[in-house]
Simulated assay, not measured.
Amino acid sequence: MAHKYTNISDLSVLIVGLGSIGSRHYSNLRALGLTKLGILRTSNTKPHTPLDLANIPVYDDYAKALANNYDAVLICNPTSMHLKYALTAARNRCNVFIEKPLSNNMNQVYDIEQLVDKFNLKVGLGYQMKFHPNLLDIKTWISEKRIGKLVNVTVNAGEYLPLWHPWENHETSYAARKELGGGVALTQIHDIDYLTWIFGDLELLYAYGGNSGILGTDVEDYVTATLKTDTNTTVHLHLDYLQNPPARTMKIVGQYGTIDWDYYQNIANLTISGKIEQISNVEASWERNTMFLDEIKDFLYAIINDNEPTSNIPNTLSGLKTTLAIMEYINSN
């Protein structure tokens, strides 16, 4: 059933958490013309970016905030709190957008799925990489079998944690705290998610990783895993909090050629028999924030048009299970 509104600017949205990602979503919602916004603060930390909150209700009580019947709730607090707040919103019949990942365990996933079905809610997940122009082209090349039978995929993604949010102590950030769902596997789950999106479900064969002792944290800051797809393509994955300068690359080897992607160079090459056949470029005017704008528009239009967001619980759950399997493998060995 279509929503009562026809324009996304008519929707009312409550943002839970005003850290880095919550602040970004707030600014993007304002840029998209939404004015019926509310903020639930879950800490006393000031936003690192000055925000115009004039005439915006700011709550410190979740129940009082939800009593205002928002059309959607954006969950932007630490990972370990995601499902607690999402379940409360769903019980109040609010559509929910949850920052990645859905959770740091599977304990209450069934509960949120039941509420979504019961109340016909829309749930979106914050996997903005699915809106990266290069990855969209790569997904098309793979679906068209441009390089034939796939042989091997290698992904390397690393970024130096202390430089993520220079305004905060990295040792106390959620990404570095086990009790908040931190650690590189869950925090950098984007790469596992887009691999699943492009190649299908992944089966874990082997994983190695842990805490290097370099960053002064108690979470895993490097992970290397070997996985395989349903068609027996081998996938080698490396994630870390340590690389400076940062890197995010993917190489796909097939029977006819290769696909090479560099996230920081915003380019992907399709090479057949040693010759570059097609190049995926990103427009010079393109900004990283465009992915975040596209994902939130996708979620809001799903509410308006009664369709599914690009990233929802069913199509991201496999990636979460794979990530948790990697963590369990490392912890048990």
Rank of each mutant, 00 (worst) to 15 (best):
T88Y: 02
S285M: 08
E113K: 15
Q108V: 10
L34N: 08
I303T: 13
D218N: 15
E220H: 14
G33R: 08
H132A: 12
L150H: 01
P314F: 05
L195N: 00
L204G: 06
V13P: 03
P166A: 04
Y263C: 09
I138N: 01
I39H: 02
E295Q: 06
I272M: 10
T45F: 05
K321Q: 15
L34Q: 11
I15A: 03
N152R: 13
M129K: 14
V223C: 13
W167P: 00
F131W: 12
D52V: 10
A89V: 06
A185P: 05
V73G: 06
E99Y: 01
Q188F: 15
Q255S: 15
A268E: 08
P101Y: 07
L40T: 02
L239F: 03
A207G: 11
K321D: 11
D111G: 06
G257V: 11
F299A: 03
L202I: 00
I326L: 10
V155I: 09
G274P: 00
K251T: 06
N211C: 15
Q243R: 14
H190R: 05
L215D: 06
I330P: 09
T224N: 12
I142Q: 01
I21W: 08
L195G: 04
G216F: 13
A86K: 07
N269G: 00
T226S: 12
L293M: 14
N289S: 14
A225Y: 07
T258R: 02
T79C: 14
N307L: 09
S173P: 06
P133W: 07
G200T: 07
Q114G: 12
N68S: 10
A175S: 13
S23M: 06
L125M: 15
F97H: 14
G17R: 08
N307T: 13
L14P: 05
S285W: 11
A90R: 09
L204Q: 07
P57D: 03
P47K: 03
A284Y: 00
W164V: 03
T172W: 01
P50N: 09
I138S: 02
L29C: 00
